[in-house]
Simulated assay, not measured.
Amino acid sequence: MVKLRLPLLIGLGLFIGGLALSSALKDRHYLLLSFVLLIAAMLPLFLRLERRKLEPRELVLLAVLAAVAAVSRIPFAALPSVKPVSAIVILSAYVFGAEAGFVIGAVSALVSNLYFGQGPWTPWQMFAWGMVGLTAGWLRNTGFMRSRLGLLTFGFVWGFLFGWIMNIWTLIGLPDAFSWGLVLTVYAQSFYFDLAHAISNVIFLSILAGGWIKVLERFRQKYGLLR
């Protein structure tokens, strides 16, 4: 288990280091930084090549799922925080594991922002959605995630965790001196957006879970993908 998680931990460490570097430099090369972090997100898959051959159809599957997650943001562009992305990332990781979830989450953020606009928020969204997939993959075989209530609870909790991660970027970008009062203000102001994200995750998971899991499981078993 440790050997299986080591590549993910390496990729996650590089990702966090990249976020810290971007905050320290405060440059405007956001798109370039996002692609660098994308390489860090893909690192677990590259290291997986040492254990077994990664088939082209597996890469195609990851690309398709990431594209579906990215495109799903567009119809809900007018509704802040109401997006199916988290639900799709969770269900993908539930079937294909933590590596796939981490990559799909990070790629979907980068690709969707080609439409919504790149900025200093992009690397943080890549990290946040990557962590959604990573944790869903790590917990997928637990009794908690195997129950419908547990899956919905996981999505609800991540609606808030996602917002809390993005609040860190907001705090770093503020010109005001750091204070705990400022932190409380930022997190209080994001509460309703985080709540909307959490509730929408529950709704989208309720709608998509049964069908998506069956279809993705069928693909995984039939073609032996991402085992």
Score class of each variant (00 low, 15 high):
residue 127 F to P: 11
residue 120 P to L: 09
residue 116 F to I: 08
residue 123 P to E: 11
residue 72 S to M: 04
residue 98 A to M: 05
residue 90 I to A: 12
residue 125 Q to V: 11
residue 79 L to G: 00
residue 126 M to P: 08
residue 134 L to A: 06
residue 108 S to W: 12
residue 95 V to K: 10
residue 93 A to V: 03
residue 71 V to K: 00
residue 76 F to E: 06
residue 73 R to K: 14
residue 102 F to W: 14
residue 93 A to I: 05
residue 76 F to K: 02
residue 110 L to A: 13
residue 122 T to F: 03
residue 105 G to Q: 11
residue 78 A to K: 09
residue 123 P to D: 10
residue 119 G to C: 06
residue 74 I to L: 15
residue 108 S to P: 02
residue 92 S to T: 15
residue 134 L to E: 03
residue 117 G to E: 09
residue 114 L to G: 14
residue 94 Y to V: 01
residue 96 F to S: 08
residue 71 V to C: 02
residue 89 V to F: 11
residue 119 G to I: 03
residue 69 A to F: 01
residue 74 I to E: 00
residue 98 A to C: 06
residue 115 Y to E: 00
residue 99 E to R: 15
residue 95 V to Q: 10
residue 133 G to H: 06
residue 131 M to R: 01
residue 89 V to K: 10
residue 108 S to C: 12
residue 71 V to N: 00
residue 112 S to G: 11
residue 87 A to T: 02
residue 133 G to W: 04
residue 124 W to D: 07
residue 114 L to F: 15
residue 84 P to Q: 07
residue 127 F to G: 08
residue 128 A to N: 06
residue 111 V to P: 00
residue 121 W to K: 02
residue 92 S to R: 04
residue 83 K to I: 04
residue 126 M to Y: 04
residue 108 S to A: 13
residue 87 A to E: 07
residue 79 L to W: 14
residue 79 L to V: 15
residue 107 V to C: 04
residue 130 G to T: 10
residue 100 A to Y: 10
residue 102 F to L: 15
residue 133 G to I: 07
residue 73 R to F: 05
residue 86 S to N: 15
residue 70 A to R: 05
residue 135 T to R: 00
residue 74 I to N: 00
residue 92 S to P: 04
residue 72 S to P: 00
residue 90 I to C: 05
residue 131 M to G: 01
residue 83 K to E: 15
residue 127 F to M: 14
residue 74 I to D: 00
residue 97 G to I: 08
residue 126 M to E: 10
residue 132 V to S: 02
residue 122 T to E: 04
residue 124 W to T: 04
residue 101 G to T: 08
residue 127 F to C: 10
residue 112 S to P: 10
residue 104 I to T: 06
residue 106 A to G: 12
residue 78 A to W: 13
residue 117 G to Y: 12
residue 94 Y to C: 00
residue 70 A to Q: 01
residue 110 L to T: 02
residue 124 W to V: 09
residue 91 L to F: 11
residue 105 G to I: 12
residue 121 W to F: 04
residue 103 V to N: 02
residue 118 Q to G: 09
residue 70 A to V: 05
residue 98 A to T: 01
residue 125 Q to L: 06
residue 81 S to H: 15
residue 124 W to H: 12
residue 136 A to I: 01
residue 74 I to M: 12
residue 132 V to N: 03
residue 124 W to M: 06
residue 102 F to K: 07
residue 75 P to E: 09
residue 75 P to I: 09
residue 114 L to C: 02
residue 127 F to I: 12
residue 77 A to E: 14
